[in-house]
Computed example of a mutant assay.
Amino acid sequence: MDDKHMQIGEVAARTELSLRTIRHYEETGLVVPSARSQGGFRLYAETDVARLMVIRRMKPLGFTLDEMRDLLQATDRLDAADLPEGEREGLLDRVRKYQQAATQKIEDLRVQLARAEDFAATLRTRLGQDTSATPS
C-alpha cells in the first residue's frame, strides 16, 4: 500500500470520527476517498483528512450537511487553478459568510456556556449551604 494513503481506521483515529460517520459523509458526498485498494478498501490522503477536519469543526457549530457541502465546494473551487477574478470574489464572499456565521455561533455558545457555569455554581452554593446546615 502507498504510504501516502491511509485506511479508514487510521483516518477515524486521526479525526476522532467513527467509521460510520466517515462512511455517512462519503454517502452524502462530503468526502470521497482518494483511492481504493486492490481489495476495495477505502484509501484516504492528507487532503481527505483535512476535509474531514473541516466537517468535524463545523458540526458542533450546528452547520447543516448542505452548508458543509457548500463551503467545501467553495473552498475546492478556490483551490482550482486559473480561476476567473469575478468568480474568485464571489467564492470569497461565500467563505466570508461562513466565517461570520461561525463567529456568531461561537459567541452564542459562549453565552450558553456562561449560563451553564452560573447554573453549576448555583448548585455548588446550594450544596454548600445544605452541608453547613446539617448537624454534626
Rank of each mutant, 00 (worst) to 15 (best):
K97Q: 15
R77K: 14
R94G: 06
L30I: 05
V32R: 13
S37W: 02
L19C: 06
T103C: 13
D82A: 14
A45H: 10
A45D: 13
T28V: 14
T75P: 09
L61S: 08
A35M: 04
R88Q: 10
Y44S: 06
G62T: 00
E67S: 07
H24D: 08
A45S: 15
T28R: 12
D76L: 03
E85H: 12
E87A: 05
R36L: 10
Q100E: 13
D76C: 11
M53W: 01
A13H: 12
L52E: 02
E46A: 14
D66Q: 14
E26K: 03
G39L: 01
K97G: 08
E67L: 01
R14K: 13
R96S: 13
G39M: 07
V95I: 02
R20S: 11
T15Q: 04
D48P: 08
A102F: 09
G40P: 11
L65R: 02
Q99A: 15
E27W: 04
G62Y: 02
R36Q: 11
D76N: 15
L61N: 00
T75M: 11
F41L: 03
G40W: 01
S34F: 09
L91N: 06
M53V: 09
R96I: 15
R51H: 01
V49N: 03
L72E: 04
V49T: 08
A81P: 03
G86Q: 11
L19H: 11
Q100A: 15
G62P: 07
L92D: 07
R69D: 12
P33T: 11
I22Y: 10
Q73P: 08
M53T: 08
G29V: 09
L52K: 00
D82S: 14
S34C: 02
G29K: 05
K59Q: 09
T103H: 14
A102P: 09
E67C: 00
Q73S: 13
D79F: 10
V49S: 01
D76H: 06
Y98E: 07
T103R: 15
T47W: 02
R36E: 00
M53E: 12
G90H: 06
G86V: 00
A45C: 05
G39Q: 09
A35G: 00
P84C: 05
F41T: 01
D66V: 11
L61T: 06
R23V: 09
R88M: 08
K97I: 14
L61V: 07
M53I: 05
R96Y: 06
L92V: 11
K97E: 12
Q73Y: 07
A50F: 01
L43E: 02
V95N: 03
E16S: 15
P84A: 04
E27T: 13
Y98P: 13
T15H: 09
D82Q: 12
Q38H: 13
A102V: 12
A74R: 08
V31R: 04
L91V: 12
G90C: 10
R88G: 09
